[in-house]
């Protein structure tokens, strides 16, 4: 099957729109700018949640044979990455499920701040958001190493995994800019 599928195109569109919102918000000062960064954050974390759900579904279907949800042949494919029993889980928990939970936590912080950017706890949540996003980076580096060097027939690139990795990097950038806005008095 083709590597570019409608869900993948939708996820890529989500990343592009979120990136555009982030760039635009960076140039906007005051509360509008902060809200813009938060909107971009919601976009990145939504892509992260949905992309993780999709890879979890691929994982479940690959256990029962093959999956029609992603290509299984070639350099860019999911079969040798999500379908690899040695690397497709962390202590038995599928990476997709870990992604859903992690991005849900990120989404909760972003939504809470977005709903009340002047709340007393908002400043603390910005820090928590930043540290949670930062904690995901070593896992992204590890998973990229796994798909490029360790899976059967490496290197392979799993397109949905890559979209989720980019979503996390986008979240690291968003949370960094939020902290910057708060610390420089440009929050509102």
């Amino acid at each position: 099957m083709s590597v570019i599928t409608p869900p993948l195109m939708a996820f890529i569109a989500g990343i592009v729109i979120s990136s555009y919102l982030l760039i635009k918000a960076k140039e906007t000062s005051g509360e509008q700018g902060t809200l813009g960064v938060l909107n971009a954050s919601m976009g990145f974390s939504a892509v992260g949640i949905m992309g993780s759900g999709w890879t979890w579904a691929i994982h479940n279907s690959m256990i029962m044979g093959s999956s029609s949800m992603c290509a299984t042949e070639g350099l860019v494919q999911c079969g040798s990455v999500i379908g690899d029993p040695q690397w497709n889980n962390l202590f038995g928990i599928p990476w997709g499920l870990i992604g859903i939970v992690s991005f849900a936590l990120i989404w909760f912080f972003v939504l809470s701040i977005r709903m009340d950017i002047h709340a007393k706890w908002a400043s603390g949540y910005v820090d928590l958001l930043f540290y949670v996003c930062l904690a995901g980076v070593p896992f992204v580096i590890w998973l990229v190493l796994v798909e490029l060097t360790m899976v059967d027939g490496a290197p392979h690139i799993c397109p949905y995994c890559t979209v989720i990795h980019i979503a996390l990097i986008g979240m690291v950038a968003c949370s960094y800019f939020l902290r910057q806005k708060r610390d420089t008095g440009a929050w509102s």
């Binding site: 759900g53 994982h59 949800m69």
Partner: peptide, 9 residues
């Protein structure tokens, strides 16, 4: 998201 994933696979 979990419900849709489980329905899909």
């Amino acid at each position: 998201v979990v419900a849709i994933s489980v329905i899909l696979a």
